[in-house]
């Protein structure tokens, strides 16, 4: 791996006595670019990141392209076209470690709503020439197509977690990314529980931590941006959401947002759509 890095032509800083920095590539599939922007939003850490890795391919930030292979690839977005399927295999082939970032890449994103719809039908309504369009019937996560080394959740990903994954990769250690619920983060911060104290419906109990309990910290219920926690009991939460006054339609909608395609949320929404939880 280091061989490839030392032979790159554009890496001016890779002098004789400086150890080669691993090459980083950032790829985009069907997505809003928000997770890539999170990298650029790492203002305080950006210089350290650029010192620690060689940013070799990152069109959102620079037109300069250094050819692969790449030690680390960060992949944003979901697979929605036949071209995507080919491209992700090419990326996998030239990546050492492949990390998917964000709800699109890890669960298919909000565009996974198409998985419940008739794509031909809305293609014919939206586009004047639907025949020019080549698209798949589904939006699927990267891991449905290639092996993924690590999945970083969130819509968008959390800046601190992203830096943590990079630091872990660079130091050859396990990232400190908890898979427990958002409730833990609320309690660690001393937040008041919004469903219990205010009657506000909240997906926190079934959602993975990572955002720092952003919405409950401001008195709002959790929207599930980080996908299902490692032991999500959606049946129980569905009953609780109904108890707090949500209609079945609304419950289906909260499960089907940014992580609609995450298996636990998908199953929960299907169950409610079919007539409620047991």
């Amino acid at each position: 791996m280091t061989d490839a890095a030392t032979h790159t032509h554009a890496d001016a800083s890779a002098g004789a006595d400086t150890p080669a920095r691993p090459k980083l590539a950032v790829w985009k599939f069907a997505s809003c670019d928000g997770c890539q922007l999170t990298i650029l939003n790492c203002e305080d850490e950006l210089l350290s990141i650029a010192e620690a890795v060689h940013i070799a391919y990152f069109p959102e930030a620079t037109r300069a392209v250094v050819e692969g292979p790449y030690e680390l690839s960060l992949v944003e977005g979901s697979i929605t076209t036949p071209e995507d399927v080919e491209r992700i295999h090419e990326i996998r082939a030239q990546s050492g470690t492949l990390v998917t970032i964000g709800a699109c890449a890890t669960a298919g994103g909000i565009q996974a709503l198409r998985n419940w719809a008739d794509v031909d039908e809305f293609r014919s309504i939206v586009y004047a020439h639907p025949e020019y369009l080549s698209t798949l019937d589904t939006s699927t996560p990267i891991a449905s197509h290639v092996d993924v080394d690590y999945e970083l959740r969130g819509c968008p990903v959390d800046k601190g977690q992203l830096v943590e994954v990079l630091a872990a990769f660079l130091n050859g250690r396990k990232p400190r990314i908890p898979t427990y619920s958002v409730c833990v983060e609320c309690k660690l911060k001393g937040n008041v529980c919004v469903p219990v104290a205010h009657g506000t419906p909240c997906l926190g109990p079934v959602t993975q931590a990572g955002c720092g309990a952003l919405c409950p910290t401001y008195g709002r219920g959790c929207y599930g941006c980080f996908g299902p926690q490692d032991s999500a009991n959606t049946d129980s939460l569905t009953r609780q959401l109904a108890e707090l006054g949500m209609s079945n339609d609304d419950i289906v909608r909260v499960y089907r947002t940014f992580n609609a395609g995450a298996p636990e949320f998908e199953a929960a929404s299907n169950k409610v759509a079919a007539g409620g939880a047991s």
């Binding site: 350290s48 833990v184 109990p205 079934v206 009991n233 129980s236 939460l237």
Partner: peptide, 30 residues
């Protein structure tokens, strides 16, 4: 178990629960 959300709230608000985990972090440069 059908009702339990596995959310941890009971343990987090319990005044006697004392379990912790150790978590090591390092910066980018190590």
């Amino acid at each position: 178990a059908n009702r339990c959300l596995g959310c941890t709230n009971c343990t987090m608000v319990c005044p006697t629960c004392f379990c912790t985990t150790m978590s090591d972090v390092s910066d980018l440069a190590g």
